[in-house]
Design a protein around this nucleic acid. Structure first.
Lengths: 189, 189
DNA sequence: TGCGTTTACCTAGGAGTATTAGGCAAATTA
DNA sequence: TAATTTGCCTAATACTCCTAGGTAAACGCA
């Protein structure tokens, strides 16, 4: 019988698509096998287990996000960079909700340390180059930015903003204005 | 044979405890039945299905959080209120990670509208009474606060802040300083 | 070109979870 | 005390995860 040509990469990619279509939590070994027309047991030659699959999808998502952010950030500084980062991040989450959810997966420390999440963190720091912040405020600010971006996307995609009036597009723009103002006027302790 | 005295409420409460112990995603009808020493089929007299169980835990968590925040907020204004809200929120999430995760569950619009989530949102608005913000900036600011709080807690509990140096306690305090400063100096469009 | 080795995919099966249908006995009410 | 409700049961179906062991296709080499 003909082989389907499975590899860990193809499975990861297909799993990511599936996540975007039906939700990350519904990505299952069985569902993935069905997509390739093979038995679920067959996937275990390529994947250690279902957790391994989820981890691979998470790592893929982190790579893609870091790539996007990197190219969005190239050649920009200050508020320009802040907005580019924010838009790239949010757009990715809207285009790929399943992958974005995957990227929130808690990884083993070693795996996380070797992931594109590190690059991502570095780029968040890079945004602040255009602002006059010394340590440890720089780190506090990085954490604040990460919190706002992640929190906003998470609440928005969860529908928390659906039933009050200004559109989320407008809020997003004003939030970025506010963050820019804050970074330019970071309060002394 | 003796009855276990199951009710939807007891099951919900036990499910919430279980969520805090092993994680919200591992709260299962079977696991809950085991805790009460009954067969899993027995729970279906009290719960519509496993989604119903999860929803009930989420609603419980929303109630508890709204209660905590309400009493933290009583008699406070301005930065005092901001900090009280933030601490109550974060403390709840740290004490009850499973319940906090449950509270993020996407609810049907009608269910959400009847939930304590509404009270929660109103209290976030109440914080802003101490600051001079008119609509629509008030709404933008509410969304920003929600994003920061949720995002920070989510990243912190996911371990994102574990491997960089200032402690998260210090960052949290400085983030609140920054938010207070921002709300007092909200930029014009 | 044919042979051996690797490996991709298979069947079979065990364990856990979600859910429904239908039954008996305990608790409640008349 | 009889009638009714209801709490928990057994049984059965379906789906997911995963392991063990087998077969045949593809590959590497003489």
């Amino acid at each position: 019988m003909a082989r389907a040509g499975l590899t860990a990469e193809r499975l990861t990619r297909a799993g990511a698509e599936l996540a975007d279509e039906v939700g990350f939590d519904k990505v299952t070994v069985a569902a993935l096998a069905r997509q390739f027309g093979v038995k679920d047991a067959s996937l275990y030659s390529h994947l250690k287990n279902s957790q391994d699959l989820r981890t691979r999808i998470a790592l893929l998502a982190l790579e893609e996000m870091a790539d996007r952010v990197a190219s969005a950030l190239a050649g920009r500084a200050g508020k320009d960079a802040l907005e580019a980062f924010a838009h790239a991040y949010r757009d990715y989450a809207r285009e790929h909700p399943g992958r974005y959810a995957a990227a929130q997966l808690r990884l083993d420390p070693e795996v996380a340390a070797a992931s594109a999440g590190v690059r991502h963190a570095q780029m968040t720091r890079a945004i602040l180059r255009g602002y006059d912040l010394a340590e440890p405020d720089r780190t506090h600010a990085v954490r604040l930015l990460g919190s706002v971006f992640h929190g906003y996307i998470s609440l928005e995609s969860g529908g928390s903003f659906d039933h009050s009036s200004p559109g989320t597009q407008e809020t997003w723009a004003r939030v970025l204005d506010a963050l820019d103002a804050l970074l330019r006027n970071w309060p002394a302790p």
